[in-house]
Design a binder for these strands. Structure first.
Lengths: 230, 230
DNA sequence: CGCAAGATTGAGGTCGTTCAAATAAAGTGG
DNA sequence: CCACTTTATTTGAACGACCTCAATCTTGCG
């Protein structure tokens, strides 16, 4: 039998998540937020809320991108989702947030005040339905991601991820990834080295290209990617 | 770089899911289901709905247990959740079910007719709130499970799983697992061999015991399990 | 232009898989 | 209730995909 050594993943020092707190848009003016919600600007790596925070609000991404993640005691991190413009995040059934949310780069979100203790009440201007739909989409994405995490190889994981991002940002051929290799690794259940090597492999196979700016990926052969992705 | 060999997991022959169709409770009488929902009885391994089926209904487990899963083209399977009595499953945002649901053994479910095209409308006898809460709990469980799949070792996975099942069925010390080793493996992203070996390791460490009936697990040291689980 | 952070590359190790076989449990029909 | 078959689970040996550790190379910035 194998030993109990914890495996893989980037170990996040359990207090390093709060370092970046840019001056711009520090405190949101969220006292008695009106129906439409207030806007909040976030700097690179700025925390929107943390695991254990009181879940008084939920959010919609307007610009930029947000990662949500959970940590293990020893710092291993699992990013469960990247939230892009239009996405709603932070809806909880209990009183506390169950994961941490941080901006990947500069980002803007709209803050909504949570309604009933358990869930939202009816009577909104369609916001309740939007929230329900958003939660369901999150669940669907989570289900797809469990399949990826539990049953796909590194090559399949990375290919699937690139296709997914390609669909979500859709800039034609080239995809501008808003996240680092570390973020990708912690989303796909891999290490940064494996992500890097796998991207290299995809380049070698000719299905993608990596320009000098490493955040950019050119999807040269989506069909080929799709074939590799599952 | 590694080769593109698909990894691990039980390969389900892509047509073997429909074999077991016991005579008892074959067709549900689900024409124009009234508000309260109709009851449907399921036999061992009987399918409740399949990926791609029209999502006209959703369900609540009354007795027994139901697994929901997704398949890859080559038959690799990921069970995203086991649904126990009280759990609601099969709520979708689109027209089709995105995964397959099967009874683990004999099971009973209540069938509810879906309302609005997108989501439920208000005005129910609290069912809408219950559905929202159920979807949120599914999402929370999915998030926890992504952490498990992406970042935990085999030992941690199995320990976490046993604790979780122990909380959900809560028969004091001994847990009667409703699922096979194959199901467990496909839920935890492992192989049956690794599940078996890991259970053996937990026995060797004295935190559990395995009676002759291998579906029963005695949790002898929950604190120890918890320590191993994360 | 020089530094720090991020990304890539290499060598070696390990956890979990794969393949194979043995053992145990659950049915089945007489 | 028992021989026999089928299915589930366990166990062993060897391999390999991905990780770990470490060094090098880029890229973005001040």
């Amino acid at each position: 039998m194998q030993t109990a050594l914890p495996p893989n993943g980037s170990r996040i020092p359990l207090s390093a998540a709060l370092v970046a707190r840019p001056a711009l848009g520090r405190r949101a003016e969220n006292a008695a937020a009106p129906r439409l919600g207030t806007t909040r600007r976030l700097g690179k790596n700025e925390e929107l809320f943390a695991e254990g925070d009181r879940a008084s609000f939920f959010y919609r991404v307007i610009s930029g991108a947000v990662r949500t993640y959970k940590l293990l005691e020893d710092g291993r991190r699992q990013i469960d989702a990247f939230h892009l413009p239009g996405d709603i995040l932070g809806v909880e059934s209990r009183e506390e947030h169950r994961f941490t949310a941080e901006a990947l780069g500069e980002a803007t979100v709209v803050v909504y005040r949570r309604r009933a203790p358990g869930v939202l009440a009816a009577g909104d201007d369609g916001l309740t339905e939007q929230v329900m739909a958003a939660v369901l989409r999150s669940l669907e994405r989570a289900q797809d991601h469990m399949l990826l995490l539990g049953r796909k190889s590194a090559l399949e994981k990375v290919a699937s991820f690139l296709l997914d991002m390609g669909e979500r940002v859709s800039d034609g051929e080239s995809v501008e990834l808003p996240m680092s290799r570390t973020d990708i690794a912690d989303h796909l259940g891999l290490t940064i080295e494996t992500v890097s090597r796998t991207l290299g492999e995809l380049v070698k196979r000719g299905v993608i290209a990596l320009p000098t700016h490493r955040r950019t990926v050119v999807l040269r052969d989506r069909a080929g990617l799709r074939h590799l992705g599952a």
